[in-house]
Design a binder for these strands. Sequence first.
DNA 1: CGGCTCTTGATTGTCGACAATATTTCAGAT
DNA 2: ATCTGAAATATTGTCGACAATCAAGAGCCG
Lengths: 233, 233
Amino acid sequence: MSTIVMNSPQSPMWRSPVTAADRLLLEIQRTIVEGEIESGSKISEPELARKFNVSRAPLREALARLERCHLIERIPNAGARVVKLSTEGLLALYQIREELEGLACRLAAENMDDAEIQQVQELLNQHLDTQRVREGESYYQEAGDLDFHYRVILGSKNPYLINMLCDELYFLVRMYRVQLGMNGPRVSRAFDEHKAIINAIANRDGELADLLMRRHIAASRVNIELKLQQLGK
Amino acid sequence: MSTIVMNSPQSPMWRSPVTAADRLLLEIQRTIVEGEIESGSKISEPELARKFNVSRAPLREALARLERCHLIERIPNAGARVVKLSTEGLLALYQIREELEGLACRLAAENMDDAEIQQVQELLNQHLDTQRVREGESYYQEAGDLDFHYRVILGSKNPYLINMLCDELYFLVRMYRVQLGMNGPRVSRAFDEHKAIINAIANRDGELADLLMRRHIAASRVNIELKLQQLGK
DNA sequence: CGGCTCTTGATTGTCGACAATATTTCAGAT
DNA sequence: ATCTGAAATATTGTCGACAATCAAGAGCCG
């Protein structure tokens, strides 16, 4: 029912006792994804610690997790840098996404129960309404798309797969999309593709769902690749 | 030439200034994989810190990385436990392995240069010799198998893929194999399968290499599954 | 006697200071 | 003027102590 972006079990988002490191992680993740800290810039531990009014201990914990989701790169005794976006990086990232989300579809077709599937279908219609009401506002499309993918991934019921996609890869995916201003034109087409995928899952046709998801992601990749090139020039 | 188990770039193994947390990580990884710390048992930070004569700071850094490769599970304010092996876990793990290593083969067929491929082929022959000389000694088979898979994965040239497989998944794979005593019977058959895979890569037939690798991993999974069941009874 | 609450004990999370390492600066020589 | 080398500076890695939180057991009440 809600449009909340769900996360996997070990994400800090819904852990009961939210620790300082958890808050820091969420905050810095947002900061990096939205581009408030420039891509490629160096991260100073003392500076960030002062900025967020915490000690370096929880900050370093947060940095460790940021490295885990590929948003920063650390070199021992030298420091951390925000990851730099590139065409090669995008390609490498989406190669994995295609493969893993395809697998997720196949597993979801086996493991999602009817109620969950129906829930996703209703969700899609909701998103369509919201999006029609607020044409042009990209955030809702972003959130809607993420929500759909999260549901399918969770539907796979494979903990490792869920962890890899939701916790390790998706923040980077969002970073590409947000920083390259991915919003407008693909909205309605993406909706149709989502619909086709969940229908295939509803028909328990994992193979088809796999194929459709791979194409869906490939289309998204081409879209971003284009933007990246035209911005590069 | 060497039979050294290579690791991906961000593994501590070959970082020039080896920090205390790096040493701890390697040591504890080994300890868990070999089963010296019982599967499912709780981990006490003060106790481990005393045992290794270090402060809790680098230890916690190491624990964070252990969580990353799924060898321990942490609950905030409650502590960490060594992961428990199970049939479901094995299945979930190998589902991903099949998919990702299949992808690795396809990419390796595109991206490995002839010299690298030849190197792997020579390596295989070396392993065969070593293994014939020391029949029954499982360690060499373990190491040889790992070495082969590592080479192919590195051959994909996809940093995310390399990181996921070598740094996040493979320690758990090794834990299953070591703790269930996987060594003897599949040795020579595995060698043939390895040979077929690298040949397909040499012929730049990524699709075939993909298929063969999936079967190879599936066979390995069935093998372990059997052992797991017969030990479970 | 069983179940609940509170206290006690231990563990984890956080802090500030110190040690080890990398980066920058500046003087001197070619 | 450029390069080399060493001192100075800043950053990261590690340490020990304190605060916050959780688990276990004693005591009380129904």
